[in-house]
Design a protein around this nucleic acid. Structure first.
Lengths: 197, 197
DNA sequence: CCGTAATGAGACAAAAATGTCTCACATGGA
DNA sequence: TCCATGTGAGACATTTTTGTCTCATTACGG
């Protein structure tokens, strides 16, 4: 096995371990390293070889979450076309990372040591900028701040991921539910064609 | 000190401890009993006298959360007047319990032992019934299920509590932000008087 | 002033989790 | 086949957390 192949395989395993860990820790935040290892189908020794400890594991999860958010933002082209369409694209791109984000969102341990990872700041900015753009274009209402809309998006992503995992809503409705509630709200709006009977 | 007075004072202390614990555990889900005790300003011994262990503490938090939700639902009179007004009342009543709910919402450890507390089922039903009523009255759109609206409400409550605690939004805007986003969404709706310039 | 009762501080052992190590085994390339 | 490398299983000591205990102190009512 060459060095390159070795590095690639390690990366694949590492990603799988991280996703399993995220899925488990989202359900049980106090899970032990042994439980994390078992959930990923590996031994505690191997887990410990890849991540020095629980802290390193959480940091790696954070890095993965940041990377996925950045990738989703890039793929969603937040600066193109109507802001509402960009929001829809963004939610769709974030769907696969929603469970991971739900975990990281509640893992405030992350910036306990002073300041949070600057990656989140940047992501928050990019999302908030999208809402700002929508407000400037007259698409979005201006009495809800971009910061709040950003937080609300995170919260709804978490709720959506949770609702899907609990079987309360169908998986394929994920994007629809979140974007429709975030953009249109629960009220009927007769003036909008979408809600016309 | 009479028995009655004693019982009353214990209840007060107990409530304070529970709220401190909720505030801490929301920020750091892996906090130890010692940290919980310190955050409540009591010794570990006293904490252990009131709650046999970590599990008992979490159960007590759950019971408190259920009681607060039931009380909020009662106070909000979900069956009176327009459903949207009832939602506003409900969010306002739930504000003080939002941090606690945010913790319990992510503490899936609660129904790990088989089934979740029936109290939550009942609360979910009451909230969902409110949204159903709004749909039946033509107030709410019918393409978002009551179950999803209920989950979304929980998620937004959590995001709101978080945003306020982080200073991202003003505390007095809590109810407004949540109800406006939940009911009206981010889009401008020219037909609605509220958004007319 | 005197008891009652709860508390805080701390000692202590038991339990749980962690970090580190060895070793046998399997896998895949040379 | 032989070797290199990663892995799982498990032993082991260390650390952390927990549960239980005692005892001095404080607060409050009689």
């Amino acid at each position: 096995m060459s060095h390159m192949d070795y590095a690639r395989l390690m990366a694949v395993d590492r990603d799988h371990v991280l996703r399993s860990a995220a899925a488990l820790l989202t359900r049980k935040s106090t899970a032990t390293m042994d439980e994390v290892a078992k959930s990923a189908g590996i031994s505690r020794a191997t887990l410990h070889r890849q991540f020095a400890g629980r802290d390193a594991l959480v940091r790696a999860l954070e890095a993965l979450g940041i990377a996925e958010c950045e990738a989703a933002l890039d793929a969603a082209r937040p600066d193109e076309g109507p802001a509402s369409d960009a929001v829809r694209r963004l939610v769709r791109e974030l769907e696969s990372a929603a469970a991971l984000l739900a975990f990281l969102y509640t893992e405030n341990q992350l910036f306990e040591g002073g300041a949070q990872n600057p990656g989140w700041t940047r992501i928050d900015e990019r999302v908030a900028d999208l809402f700002k753009r929508g407000q400037a274009a007259g698409e979005f209402r201006i009495d809800l701040t971009p910061a709040w809309l950003t937080e609300a998006l995170y919260g709804l992503l978490g709720s959506g991921a949770w609702a899907v995992s609990e079987g309360r809503v169908a998986s394929r409705d994920f994007t629809f539910m979140i974007t429709e509630l975030l953009l249109g709200g629960a009220l009927r709006h007769p003036a909008r064609p979408r809600e016309e009977s």
